[in-house]
């Protein structure tokens, strides 16, 4: 798999959307530094199916490091159709769920009527992976404003700490060998993990928790299952 690199990100927050260097066909684009909006747009347009960035000041993974990363994203018996692997700060700043669902729609993997629910489910899954996984923060009490404020402060503090901000958040869209099994989206984080058995399985049916992220995840897919270590959440979509 080819791994061309873009030049480092410019100083301005939003790079002008000029032509994007060719990716060498169906390959992996490893961006040197935090990903920019124009690179995300190129991913959505289908110019490369795999996009990997790196924290500021760090080179993108290549050679053995890239093989190791891609190997960790592969799931047995599945073909990778799309993958976005960003460090936590990038994933926090960009709309990962819009990028993935936009690219899926562009490739014909989903229909327009599926986008809204899937985007919501994926957004919640990504938020959980970032906040509870990579940043290791608990949820605030949703009816307490002071909790919300201190939660925002805690997020900022963790994002400023390289030990947390450099962790990766990866979303991988895969096709199982049997098309009847539908598409799968795997959301990987690099946090310490947790015990998925502790999650209330019927949370969706609980009126007082119906506004929680888990309810929105379940509403947007057929199944949502964590790996036993809690670091990968897999959303399964119905077959086309």
């Amino acid at each position: 798999m080819s791994a061309p690199s873009f030049p480092p990100a410019p100083a301005q927050p939003e790079a002008p959307s000029g032509p994007v260097p060719p990716s060498g066909g169906a390959g992996c684009l490893c961006h040197d530094g935090p990903v920019r909006p124009d690179i995300i747009r190129a991913f959505i347009r289908g110019e490369f199916p795999i996009l990997i960035d790196s924290p500021a000041g760090s080179p993108p993974p290549d050679g053995d490091a890239l093989d190791t990363l891609l190997g960790s994203l592969r799931h047995t018996g599945e073909e990778i159709l799309l993958a976005l692997s960003l460090h936590t700060l990038s994933a926090y700043e960009h709309d990962v769920s819009a990028a993935i669902t936009g690219a899926m729609l562009r490739q014909g993997l989903i229909t327009a009527d599926m986008v809204s629910r899937l985007r919501t489910a994926l957004h919640e899954a990504v938020a959980n992976a970032l906040i509870h996984g990579n940043l290791e923060l608990p949820s605030p009490r949703r009816d307490e404003l002071n909790d919300f404020v201190s939660f925002g402060d805690a997020i900022s503090a963790r994002l400023a700490d390289p030990a947390y901000a450099r962790r990766r958040l990866s979303v991988v869209v895969c096709a199982p060998a049997d098309p009847a099994e539908g598409l799968r989206l795997h959301i990987h984080n690099e946090g310490p993990g947790f015990n998925p058995a502790a999650l209330p399985p019927q949370e969706r049916r609980s009126p007082e928790r119906a506004h929680g992220g888990w309810a929105l995840i379940l509403a947007g897919c057929d199944h949502a299952v964590f790996t036993p270590d809690g670091r990968i959440l897999t959303l399964t979509l119905p077959p086309a």
Partner: peptide, 16 residues
């Protein structure tokens, strides 16, 4: 443009 579960939580705080 978009509301997630945190946004829903904010609306619940306003309701309270």
């Amino acid at each position: 443009e978009y509301i997630d579960s945190s946004g829903l939580g904010m609306l619940l705080i306003a309701r309270k």
